[in-house]
């Protein structure tokens, strides 16, 4: 980054890193930063923890409320808040207001924060009106790419066409659609460890769809789902590689897939 002075916070984009990307795959967050910066935005990453999604879905409303208050004070002064995850963005956008009674100042704050919070592809396509240049990926043409629509992004935020558009522009390939692209992969946050057997059956059903689409690569927008699918594929000895869609949109080589090393 250059030595130019940073713009005021109200002009900056804050990245909501998301816990899973922070811990297990920083490359996704780096990709998100690169993509947002590409369209002229100044990106900041305030020191953050978790949006509270696991607590919210476990029924721990009080604990979620405390985390939500932290997040509000951390992010409310930025122009946009962008997450490379549909479920984290939806937690803020859709569910934060449910934590506070309507008419309260906190509820009002949540509504305002929600308005400027976006899932990455939704932001790039719908807000930044991004048109990505085509990049020359040596084997992109022969590569079959399937896309898993993570449930929160799909049903709570309407993320479906956006990542497909970005991938189409950038890679010049069409998605090999799976018949079950909109069916839950069985991750479900704590669900996958609470009911591992059911979760495994669900991810196996997802893999049937991946195999039918003859996909070399599976993409998606939520690392939780992707770790679940990638982990099961790897265990079954499949050749299909799994990435977050943002990793394939950057200028650099995406490197090893989730669960692989150089």
């Amino acid at each position: 980054m250059s030595a130019t002075a940073s713009p005021p916070k109200t002009e900056q984009v804050a990245l909501l890193v998301t816990c899973l990307s922070d811990l297990f795959r920083p490359q996704i967050a780096h990709a998100a930063v690169e993509l947002i910066e590409k369209f002229g935005y100044w990106v900041d990453v305030p020191r953050q923890t978790c949006c509270g999604q696991p607590a919210f879905n476990a029924g721990e409303k009080d604990k979620t409320r405390i985390l939500a208050e932290n997040m509000i004070s951390l992010f409310e002064s930025y122009r946009y808040v962008i997450a490379p995850s549909g479920s984290c963005a939806a937690t803020i956008k859709v569910h934060y207001p449910e934590l506070f009674s309507e008419g309260s100042p906190e509820h009002e704050q949540c509504m305002k924060l929600g308005e400027k919070t976006h899932e990455l592809s939704g932001f790039l396509v719908d807000v930044a009106k991004a048109a990505l240049e085509k990049k020359s990926l040596p084997d992109a043409r022969s590569m079959r790419i399937a896309y898993h629509d993570s449930c929160s992004g799909l049903r709570e935020l309407g993320i479906r066409s956006q990542p497909r558009k970005l991938l189409g522009d950038r890679l010049g390939v069409d998605i090999s659609e799976m018949s079950n692209s909109e069916v839950c992969c069985g991750f479900g946050g704590l669900f996958c460890v609470k009911y591992p057997e059911i979760s495994t059956r669900m991810v196996d059903n997802k893999i049937v769809g991946i195999e039918k689409a003859e996909a070399d690569v599976l993409l998606g927008g939520d690392l939780g789902c992707l770790m679940n699918i990638a982990g099961r594929l790897r265990r079954l000895g499949s050749e299909t590689r799994v990435y977050h869609y943002a990793e394939l949109l950057t200028d650099s080589d995406p490197g090893p897939a989730i669960g692989y090393q150089k």
Partner: peptide, 9 residues
């Protein structure tokens, strides 16, 4: 028990 877990980057 049924899935691999990725080594963090």
């Amino acid at each position: 028990s049924s899935r691999d877990f990725p080594v963090p980057q």
